[in-house]
Each structure stands twice: as structure tokens, then as C-alpha cells.
Amino acid sequence: MTEPQRGEDGPGEERPGRWSRARSRVAGLAGTAKVLREEVPLVGRALRQIVRVNLLDSATRLAAQAFLSALPALLAVAVFAPAAIRDGVVSSMRDQLGITGEAQKTFQQMMSAEHTDVTQSFGAVGVVVTLLSATTLSRALQRVCERCWEIPKAGTRVAAWRWLVWLLVWLVFLVLQVPVRKGFGLGVWIGYPLLLVFATLLWWWTQHLLLGSRVRWYPLLPGAVLCGGGQVLLTVAALVYLPGAVSRSVAKFGPYGVVFTSLSWLIVLFTAMTLGIALGRVVSEESAAARLLGTPTEPGRWGRREG
């Protein structure tokens, strides 16, 4: 009887195949991750924070609320606004969601409708109802902030006015975003740094407002910087990627292609924002940053309203 050759399967002999090699690699990666968590505490805390926040689920909820309620509110307010504001809304939608070509023409026609026609078909009551329904985005974002900072849910009486105020400021920021990016006519060389400053301030104020002032200002700064930087990078990426993506999607799916691409991009945007807020807390609680920012380290530190 001939003995099995080397490298062949034989009785009582197992040859490490493709799956066993894959399992070995996975086990090696898991071991590396464990070592990183033990030797680099920041990595371990960041991973635990991402799991706690449920990153993709939170981002998808925010994107859906923005698409279904906040964007209609933006349009409802814009059609009653002066022409300059309507033009700002069209430019912002083009840059942020890649609405170009026929979709942009239809959008511009809708925005250029006579105010009397819009008032008769929609009405001031409709605008108010749309704005109130759009606060679902504010509420969803508040829950994300509370989850990131492990803070109990705020009462409705305390938070209700904050939802509407945040929504209105967010709408104003969207209208002004394109002029800011262009540096108010001075050029993008000053526009993008300005956009970074404005976006950082917006997300700094957003966290403080929606958390009900239960977290002091300085610990919120790292998350604001991460969100602001992420928003600027995604703005640049949108200008490069979205026009072509929307055109391909429209060619394949028709008018629904705009919906698919826009919603997918909103998910990417809110994934970056949720990640920024979540990792901002991790950074602010690092020992050196905590001393600099005055982040408290005792358990239950965010349980009560501060200031």
C-alpha cells in the first residue's frame, strides 16, 4: 500500500485547506484587535462606543427623517421666502444631494412658482404643520446625542422648543452654506476654512442644545470638530461624486434614481456625523483631553442638568 503523498489528503491526516486558513486569519485578526483594545485603551473605548450607539441604525434613522420630513420643511419655507433664499436652497440641494439635469429644472420650476399659487395650494397652516412634523429629525438627533453621552432622555416640556429652534437654525445653515463655501465672493480658498468654522460651531451648539445643557461646552468641542471636518470633506466629495452618480441612477431607474442616490448619500452623511459625536466623547475623556477640557470622570457625571 502506497503512503499518501505529501500535501494530499490521506487517512487520519488533515490538510489545512482554504477555510482553515481563513479561520486562522480571522482568529489572528481577532487576537490583534484584542491586543489593541488592551494596549491602546482609546481604540477599545472607541469600538465600545460605536457598538453602544448602533452607528448604522442611528444614521439610517436620521437620514430617513431628514429625507421624509426635514427636506419638505425646507422646501415649504423656501417657497414663501424671497428669491435670494430660494436660489440658496436650489444651490444647496444641488451641492448636497447632486440634483442636476432634468431633476434640477423641475425643482427650480417648483421653487419659482408664484406665491399666490403656493399659498392657495399649501397655505400657512400647511407650512406650520410641515415644520412641526420635521422636528422628528431633531428628536432623532437628540436621542443619538443622549445615547453617545449615556444621558437619560429629556422630558418633552424641556426639549420641545429646542427641537424647533434647532430645525430653524439648520435650515438657515443650509441656505447659507453655498455662499459660505464660496467665501462670500472672495473664493474657495477662504470659503472652505469658513465652512469648517461654521459647521464646527453648528455641531458644537447642536450638541449643547439638544442635550439640554446637561454637558458643559468644552467636552463637546472634539465631537464638534470631528463633525465639522467630516461635513466639509463630504461636501467636497459630493461635488465630485454625486452629479455622476445621480445621472447613472436616473438612467437606470428613472426619476426614482434621484431618490435612491439622495437617500444613500444622506445615510453616508449622518453616519459621519453620528461617528463624530460618538468619538468626540471618547476623545474628550482621554486623560490629557479631560484635564484640558474639564471633562469630569466620576460615574453618573451627566445625570443632572448643569448650568
Rank of each mutant, 00 (worst) to 15 (best):
E3R: 15
E3P: 15
D9I: 15
G10D: 06
P11H: 01
E13F: 08
R18Y: 00
R18E: 09
A27M: 04
V35Y: 09
V40Y: 02
R45E: 02
Q49F: 05
V53M: 04
A70H: 03
A76P: 13
F80H: 01
A84I: 08
I85R: 00
G98I: 05
I99Y: 07
E102T: 15
Q108P: 01
M110P: 05
S112Y: 11
S112E: 15
S121V: 15
G123C: 14
S133F: 15
S138E: 12
S138V: 14
L141G: 06
Q142S: 08
E150K: 13
I151C: 09
G155K: 06
G155F: 01
T156Q: 14
V165R: 10
V165K: 10
V175T: 07
V175C: 10
L176W: 05
Q177S: 08
F184W: 07
V188N: 05
W189G: 05
P193D: 01
F198M: 14
L201F: 09
R214M: 04
L221P: 08
A224R: 12
V232H: 11
L234N: 09
Y241I: 14
P243K: 01
V246N: 07
S247C: 04
S247V: 11
S249L: 07
A251R: 04
K252V: 03
K252D: 06
G254D: 08
T261G: 00
T261A: 08
S264R: 12
S264T: 14
I267W: 09
L269M: 03
L275T: 13
V283E: 01
V283K: 04
E285D: 02
L292T: 14
P296I: 01
G303P: 00
